[in-house]
Amino acid sequence: MTRYAMAIRTANCVRCMGCVVACRAENDVPEGSSRNWIGQTELRGRFPHVGVDFVPGQCMQCEEPHCARVCPVGATSKDEDGVVRIDRDVCIGCRYCVLACPYDARFANHELGVADKCDFCTDRVRAGREPACVQTCPSRTRVFGDLDDPDSEISTLVASERTHRKKLEAGTEPKIFYIDS
């Protein structure tokens, strides 16, 4: 089996926004919305020892996705490769999934009248390439791969590094792993 996931080395991110631009270019995202983003933590410390982390975010490709659970027409589902996808031909645009996502990773695509979000660049990955955000990142912040392959870089990272996942208390079992620096 394949279980695609992503690890994010927060310490590497310089918030160049390359991933956000690459995602827009790849996925034809309408103006005013984005499939990914870079947040930031509070400033910590006192000058001259000051720090801040930039924290990239996107759909967490949950193992137990609430968005799929609430969809009234079955348009959202977790596929066999572990990626949560929206069938744009089935979605009726009710936006229940947008509200059900604890990560606010979804948005209403008003041009198409359907819900929209990151799908790990399905077309690219099926063609054997990496997602656009991963390929474009100049600081090697993102690692994409298959958790079910024990030799993959992401499996090694998740096994050897200290990682955390966001909002585990929501119970959705997200598959974006943040590497603690």
């Binding site: 969809c71 027409v73 009726i92």
Partner: peptide, 21 residues
């Protein structure tokens, strides 16, 4: 709905975990 013409899809399926369905 974002796609009102597709509302009939609500009645092409029953999704037991979806309160909306």
């Amino acid at each position: 709905l974002g796609s009102p013409m597709r509302f009939w899809r609500l009645f092409s399926t029953v999704q037991w975990t979806s309160p909306m369905s």
